[in-house]
Nucleic acid binder design. Structure first.
Lengths: 207, 207, 207, 207
DNA sequence: AATGAATGAGACTTCATTCAT
DNA sequence: TATGAATGAAGTCTCATTCAT
């Protein structure tokens, strides 16, 4: 009994902390998506999460800490979502599926996507996140590249492409398309872009 | 004599004002590229341009005015540069040439490019520039679209593409590629991307 | 058996509490000597003592409590050390011995001395400690005065001095010397000051 | 006329700034004497001087800047006052006169004296002012030493003293006496201390 | 036209303090 | 008893903005 009680108490402290952190991050994602990084204040994050004005500073150490944590949170989440969505073995199908998934998840999860793009903008001038984002880019491109090479080996994709550049360009198109859509969501039809992109890519990669 | 003097003075005043404004804008471009919009202060712009701390506020009316003016300046300049670079009539060649030009001018003019991308990030959350940037996107895509349609009419490009989406995707790839390069200029070879992109695009558009 | 157990537990609780308090105070002395009162936080004291961030507040009731306890601790300790060091009966020898002891103990115990001087500075503006420190001064001077009067009665010291002022001035020289040394320990030779002071005092008090 | 106007204008800007700085410093001296450094806020200094809450930060760059400026101000002022008070050539008379002046100016200018002692306390833990204060000490002691050596050369003072240590001890007595007085002004008679000190010093230095 | 003095709002940050476990 | 989660107050600092010269 006593052991159980202690465990419960201990767990409950840790849980409390964990829940608070998750709520703060969720509030931060929303606010950053709406207003951008600089116009999101620590106080607002605390209050939007239902806590005090001071808690975000307490947890994340300050604004910098929040930004870094936020970047890790968004990047990690996106990576995990992509992995879960992979239903094919390495190759052309998985490549095209991942591209389509990128379009669809942007539409489905506009808030988080917008927050990630805000971070990408910040990355241009904020050393705290530059590396992390560059690494995200590199990792994403690398995944495309792996699939391209597998597809070439399988004869699904022509062998004379520069797989590395091609991978970067695929990621580029996805990013650029979503970026334009975020600036004018009412004007741009994301699913049309998805279909056209998949078709074009199939043609340009065809052996 | 008096009239002449007045004219001369007036012109010299106007010129001085113009030169000062240009210098202020140039300084702003540089600082924004280095630090981002929020971390660029009006005073710094004034001093970096060799004037007083107060002049930018005097000229641009305030920070918002500076941002708007800066956006117009960068967008206008880029558009004019593109026009100057067009050496072919509407069609596939001009399309591919414009794409290549986009890559090359980013590499050649990294500071201005970076400043423009900072503005694109800002556009996600700042109504002052959102419309202007969305319009830039729409205009750029429209230009690609026009060329695509001309090329289709000429039989250079297959007729079953969605010209509107295709145009957006072309712009997307350009933006996304330069965006990745700005985050990791040492890692990414922009001219390799240019060549691979032109080749891929040619294949995917081929009739 | 039961009573014994309770006593043992109670004693062990009390001991634990006492040991914790001593460790906290020792940590506080060190931190205050290094950083000053305001820059020493309760959390730091707890952690530096090997306990939790919250313990100092728990024990001392708050920052004020810590300051007051610290003052009592340092003052009491210094007084007891002086008593232990007294090897002569009241009179000139004990007076000169106490003066020399003051110099030596400052050199030997720089951390505690520094902490005490930090408190003396704080005493100028913090009513919590002003009286305690003024009383320390008064008591110290009184001790010198008692020895002076005994020495006058014994004929060791000239009778025309103002014993009260003289006592204050002796304490003043000790304090002022150590104060200068704490600001520039590498520049000032404390033992040279001790010898010169004892010699000067002997001459000025000589009948 | 025009030139005059310009001069007036220019001078008036500079004057405005200068006057503001002097008023801010005067307010800072008063507040620091009353509450200590940490409990004096920049806002209070601004308002006490009749300006805005933000002006001190604007002028001094921040709290650190204020502390440094304040130290320079007080140290410089005290030095100049001492020089003005010197009515004798180098030697014993000037030495004793300076000592007496030190007591008298503390009594006359209690606020500034208290502020200087607050800074001396701060100097123990704040690298920003440590050196400045150590230098003040060294300079003050050096002045006493110079007078001691002149007096020895003139035969007014015995030759077997350690002039350097003696000088430090004289400064020490002055500092220590004023320090005690500041902690208990009602209990301690500063002029009695002055007279007793001058008498004692004369005896201990007499050839 | 141009400078720079002065204001004041707002955000970050740091902690003492309180409270639940 | 002891921990550490959470609060909230207060101060520093940075700037956009306004205004006098």
């Amino acid at each position: 009994m006593r052991t159980l009680t202690e465990r419960t108490e201990r767990r409950s402290q840790a849980e409390r902390r964990d829940e608070a952190e998750q709520r703060l991050l969720a509030a931060a994602v929303r606010l950053v998506a709406e207003r951008g990084l600089e116009r999101t204040t620590l106080s607002e994050v605390g209050e939007a999460a239902g806590y005090s004005r001071g808690l975000p500073a307490h947890y994340f150490g300050g604004k910098s800490g929040l930004i870094v944590t936020l970047a890790a949170h968004l990047i990690g989440r996106f990576g995990r979502a992509l992995e879960r969505a992979e239903r094919h073995g390495p190759g052309l199908k998985r490549l095209l599926g991942a591209a389509a998934f990128y379009f669809d998840s942007a539409a489905k999860d506009q808030t988080r996507t917008r927050a990630l793009f805000v971070l990408l903008g910040e990355g241009l001038n904020n050393a705290l996140v530059t590396d992390r984002l560059a690494e995200l880019n590199a990792r994403s491109a690398k995944t495309f590249e792996t699939n391209l090479r597998a597809a070439i080996a399988d004869g699904e994709v022509r062998a004379d492409i520069d797989a590395e550049s091609q991978a970067i360009l695929i990621l580029a198109a996805l990013r650029g398309a979503v970026g334009q859509w975020l600036l004018a969501p009412k004007t741009i039809d994301l699913s049309a872009l998805r279909d056209e992109f998949v078709a074009s890519l199939s043609r340009s990669l065809a052996p």
